[in-house]
Design a binder for these strands. Structure first.
Lengths: 67, 67
DNA sequence: AAAATAAGTAAAGCTCGCTTTACACCTCGG
DNA sequence: CCGAGGTGTAAAGCGAGCTTTACTTATTTT
């Protein structure tokens, strides 16, 4: 699974700290998500998608045949 | 957050064991999700939604102002 | 009546999601 | 030149997500 967080964030000229604040997690969490260190929880994924005005499926990309 | 797993499963006359198998988790996991003991991970949510032919947002219901 | 199928509960154990703290590197404005 | 803002890494710690095993209860089938 990959995600478009960094991409969407840059598009809108938002810093990691701003996004972290807006979705109520630490900056470390945003960094870890962007760098693919781990996956967001369902609730966090929802808050991020909502923040960008998109659906979860538009922000988080699930590859075919993914475990 | 609530979900429509039990509802969708009954609609389609699928047992917990069948669903568990299809999305590659144990039956305990399905029971726990249905009874709200905890939330699915993003990947599992995606597999379940896909199994039902729906989006994550259609299966998992996020209430307003949810943490 | 016995057996099979479906649903539920409980508890121990491991890994992953997220936090906290602290430090490093770059770039840009004053 | 120096400090501030933005991004990155590292490591310890806690709780959530999921597994495994085992037992219970109800309904259906033979």
């Amino acid at each position: 699974m990959t995600n478009r967080i960094a991409e969407l964030r840059k598009e809108r000229k938002i810093s990691q700290a701003e996004l972290a604040d807006a979705v109520d997690v630490t900056r470390q969490t945003i960094i870890s998500l962007e760098s693919g260190r781990y996956n967001a929880s369902l609730l966090l994924a929802h808050r991020i998608a909502k923040y960008f005005g998109l659906t979860i499926e538009e922000v988080f990309l699930f590859e075919e045949g993914e475990v």
